[in-house]
Design a protein around this nucleic acid. Structure first.
Lengths: 216, 216
DNA sequence: CTCGTTTTCCAACACTGTTCGAAAACTGTG
DNA sequence: CACAGTTTTCGAACAGTGTTGGAAAACGAG
């Protein structure tokens, strides 16, 4: 079948879902299409452009997933509920592909229309929530980079933590008592994500109640 | 001179500062040491371990820079000042190397002692600021990932934005009025960073005043 | 010196992204 | 259909990557 930019991105997404970000190669994408690697370069300027297109598609998926989640919300939902719906939709969309956070991290974020759509809806939600207009941009930016940052460290966490001897462990506890102590709660990533979001809500709420707070 | 793990990391850091994260190769690091690439593998398990060691060193530099900045603070400094000092020190340390944020992003963060030291001091500052203990872990985690996320998008921003036709620009303005409008303030990255930090402060303050806020 | 260990070299291997000229496929025209 | 022109694909090549393993050198102790 004929080769197209769209079909190349499609194949790129499936290969991406299978082998992850680190092992994605042009040759594998070409193989999936029954073509040779060099042929891709007639439709795509290079791997960078392909990655950028794929990042945009992830954003689109996150946007669509967000509209579904928002639609399922009861009419009594508050604005933190609506923000959380969008944030978790974005997080789940990124987590669908191994290394998905790195894909979003390394592509220049604000250019793709998918990212713009995510941003636009978030800004609207914040405005409706009562956040002053002059702080909405910062707030939405912070929230988006927070989600990608969270998934980044979530996906990079080693599945099996390296074994430490009792001696090393004791030294760590002495040097870093707070970190090794009970300040770091042993909760699931989902709950951790939800609580970090509520932390941001608190900031948004403080901004909407007394806008002067963020101006120093 | 003899080859050592420390010397390899040293060479890696200088090459890293010159060519950036994307173009860092084992052969360049070996060349800088007057050695051959294969020799590195006697001291280092692979490129991954070298990158992890380098990430740890960046964290150490950020920690040391933070102690200096904190020491230069007047005694009248408030806790937001002390947090901002640590956050900006971390940001500047990451920005010193091109692609430094990606280095931190791709290395499993919580394992290195440098990252632990950063975390420990941040936790202490938050505790002193009055943030309830059960929220300190989340808060510190959110702040660290916020800084790396911010520098990530800061370093990936294209220096010269691609030219858009007036027609495309008009369509963008119609589809994304909030994003293209004046909600996104045209301020420097420094000021943007400072304001996003104040947004997090507001969240911390809300937590320390009424801890129930973040529990729903 | 000599043995044994630690360290370095060097040539390979299997990959990667990318380029380029030639071959093929397709399109519209006489 | 045949021909010319364009669009698309191929296939081989290039320079570079991380990594490995056996040979060679350097080193320290007896």
């Amino acid at each position: 079948m004929k080769l197209t930019k769209e079909r190349i991105v499609d194949a790129g997404m499936t290969v991406f879902a299978e082998v992850g970000y680190q092992n994605l190669s042009m040759r594998q994408v070409a193989d999936r299409l029954g073509a040779h690697a060099g042929s891709l370069y007639y439709h795509v300027r290079g791997k960078d452009e392909l990655l950028a297109l794929m990042a945009d598609r992830v954003c689109r998926q996150a946007y669509d997933a967000g509209t579904e989640t928002l639609a399922a919300l009861p009419p009594t939902a508050t604005w933190p509920d609506r923000i959380e719906a969008q944030a978790t939709a974005l997080r789940l969309s990124i987590k669908q592909h191994p290394g998905g956070a790195q894909l979003l991290a390394e592509s220049p974020g604000r250019l793709s229309t998918g990212a713009l759509a995510l941003m636009e809806r978030l800004l609207r939600t914040l405005l409706d929530a009562g956040v002053p207009a002059e702080h909405c941009g910062i707030a939405a930016d912070a929230l988006l980079s927070h989600v990608t940052g969270f998934v980044l460290q979530e996906q990079n966490q080693p599945s099996s933590p390296p074994p430490v001897t009792a001696e090393q462990y004791a030294e760590l506890c002495e040097r870093f008592p707070l970190v090794m102590g009970d300040l770091i709660p042993r909760i699931s990533q989902d709950e951790k994500f939800a609580r970090s979001l509520r932390l941001l809500y608190a900031g948004f709420a403080a901004l909407s109640w007394s806008p002067r707070l963020a101006d120093r």
